[in-house]
Design a protein around this nucleic acid. Structure first.
Lengths: 217, 217
DNA sequence: ATAGTATAGGGTGAAAACAGCTTTTTTTAA
DNA sequence: TTAAAAAAAGCTGTTTTCACCCTATACTAT
């Protein structure tokens, strides 16, 4: 039955790839390719002429209007359409970029047809499809806000560590526990840093440290 | 062979659960439980007395030093140890929170033993283990984090001004004078902002405001 | 009219941060 | 090997911050 099939569109500037893929997917009998487009602008033009697709396969590098822009436009104007990024690149940046733009999944062009079909069906049902390629990068992205240890200016390693831990919700008592030191020793560090930075409060200390680029957040 | 086993530690404040789990995992013949601890501070105390674990199973809610703090401490002091969060909660907040703190995976306490074993082995080999529970939340987090940064928490003009003045050495009393308001009113702003930013101290507030690019220094 | 909401102000007690100074331990170098 | 220096820990206060209770306007929207 027609309505059981997943309706999709393909946006990619490589005509041969696009049309070959359309045939391949149509043969699976589970996918119905409504239309294809050369780039984002072309897609926007063609969209009103067809039923709304369930899923759009989206290339990244395209002339005129690329995959990031097109995905953002879709999320703004047709948030119910699921975007599956389809690209040659395995690097972090395009993957994270497309997901941030609103894509619900990311597949490599070198994938097997069967895998692509199951990704399309998955994203159509759950509005996202996470594979091994994507999951690790997602996790690393979310964790990427750790301070970098570069220690100039007259700060001892412990003072610097203390300074980093200061940029948080932790109390001095907690910081003392974390550094395996007595709160009194922590107090010595605090006094020393207050003098060195000429401040009178922990907040002032944090601001100064950030201005001096001693720590990053 | 002993060296083929994955060495782990268990940090959880429920003694019976902890010890039951230790037995269960030991029986699998693939896991070696080095030690267990009642909370983060206890773990930090016990850590030097044993070989470094490959994986630490980490509860979230614990007295004295909770799972978030403990995981952050581990990432700061022993980044080579993989943390697998083990919790009863299925909500977004603890999951994202533990992953942000540095956990490489998240399992529910109601999981099957075999699944936990494979998660431990997986995280030990790849330093992360993403299951269905986590993947969707990760993606939603990365996509929802953009609007959070661009159109953030609704702040009144006064709250924003207060926030700016907070990023300094001034006391709240001084800030109250500067804004020609009673210290009690300033206190209301502080409480409101602490809630909105989910922090417990002025320092945490400043850091959050900077991360959200609400203020510049 | 009135319930809701945002804003301003008030008070108290506890916890944390801050200040200044002393003592012990560890490290380093004369 | 011993004296000086640095790091760590201790002690005793004061001030600031934090948490939680409350009242009173004033401006909305139903």
């Amino acid at each position: 039955m027609q309505t059981d099939k997943v309706n999709i569109a393909i946006v990619d500037d490589h005509t041969l790839f696009r049309q070959g893929l359309a045939h391949l997917l149509t043969e699976s009998n589970e996918i119905n390719v409504l239309f294809d487009a050369d780039n984002g602008a072309d897609m926007i033009k063609k969209l009103p002429a067809y039923p709304l697709p369930d899923v759009i396969l989206m290339d990244i590098t395209m002339p005129i209007m690329n995959g990031y822009e097109t995905t953002k436009w879709l999320k703004a104007n047709h948030p119910e359409i699921n975007v599956l990024a389809l690209s040659m690149f395995e690097e972090d940046k395009p993957i994270i970029g497309m997901l941030k733009s609103g894509a619900g999944g990311y597949m490599l062009k070198q994938s097997k047809a069967a895998d692509l079909v199951s990704a399309i069906k998955g994203i159509s049902a759950q509005s996202f499809y996470i594979n091994e390629l994507v999951s690790g990068k997602l996790l690393r992205n979310i964790q990427n806000n750790q301070p970098v240890k570069n220690a100039p200016i007259g700060l001892s390693p412990n003072e610097l560590k203390f300074l980093e831990l200061c940029c948080s919700d932790f109390t001095y008592k907690q910081i003392a526990d974390m550094m395996n030191l007595s709160p009194h020793t922590i107090d010595n560090y605090r006094e020393a840093l207050f003098q060195k930075f000429e401040v009178k409060s922990r907040t002032g200390l944090v601001i100064s440290a950030l201005k001096n680029e001693l720590i990053k957040i």
